[in-house]
Amino acid sequence: MTAPAYNFAYLDEQTKRMIRRAILKAIAVPGYQVPFASREMPMPYGWGTGGVQVTASILGQKDVLKVIDQGADDTTNAVSIRQFFEKTAGVETTTETLAATVIQTRHRIPETTLQGHQVLVYQVPIPEPLRFLEPRETETRKMHALAEYGLMHVKLYEDIARHGHIATTYAYPVLVAGRYVMDPSPTPKFDNPKMDDCAALQLFGAGREKRIYAIPPHTKVVSLDFEDHPFEVTRFDRPCALCGAQGSYLDEVVMDDRGARMFVCSDTDFCESRQENGHRGPLNQEAAE
């Protein structure tokens, strides 16, 4: 028995058309979650099936694909998804942010500023920003229809009352083009400002929840906040230990069992290209010679 031959990028053409129609609607109504008939993929729900279906539907033979998870090209799930597209679409892949035309991501936006010819595809676990306030789809749909987002502000303000801070550090809700409150997927709020006025098209795919949404290029994306408690990004009080970058998002690496820690860029391509250009961090001095 021979293995069945799959279509370019795995999905059959009818499925792609259905997803493509949803993508066009998503772009036309920024931040609105378009329902789509998500298919079972050969990888588990919750592992990027939404992102994979979106990528498979937009990908052409001339595209160059980059896949990251937690900012890194070498995390296991990123490797697995990249291999999937190498096998089923035969497209060129890269780890270089600027060389890619399509970037599929989980939990990060690259540090390098994205360009107009690029598309950023997010994997989304729970697309509904109101889901944890109201579990019912019938209710949240009404709230979006009426732009009734008071509940979200109440929740954020309760955080301030209890903790002195808005306690949401990732999947921090944003208002897109002044109309829809949107979940940016579990990216750290550090990345939220990159979504605003971004030159690249941003597409979001939630496979298990069967929703697609989008932010067109150069769209206003505002993180929800209050006059007396403005939105603040997470800041790191040290540079990357390897490349010395200030102001990039850092992973904490546990060095031993006595509390030693080092902090390195989560965006591996950003960190490596800085090191190639001679930048060095405090724990990487000997290698500079």
């Binding site: 729900y45 998870d69 937690q70 579990p186």
Partner: peptide, 21 residues
């Protein structure tokens, strides 16, 4: 099962954000 098991995928970026806060 997909969504329950996806919790074993790396979440260090989000965890780091929580740690910092």
């Amino acid at each position: 099962t997909g969504f329950v098991e996806h919790l074993k995928l790396p979440h260090y970026v989000d965890f780091q954000a929580e740690l910092a806060l």
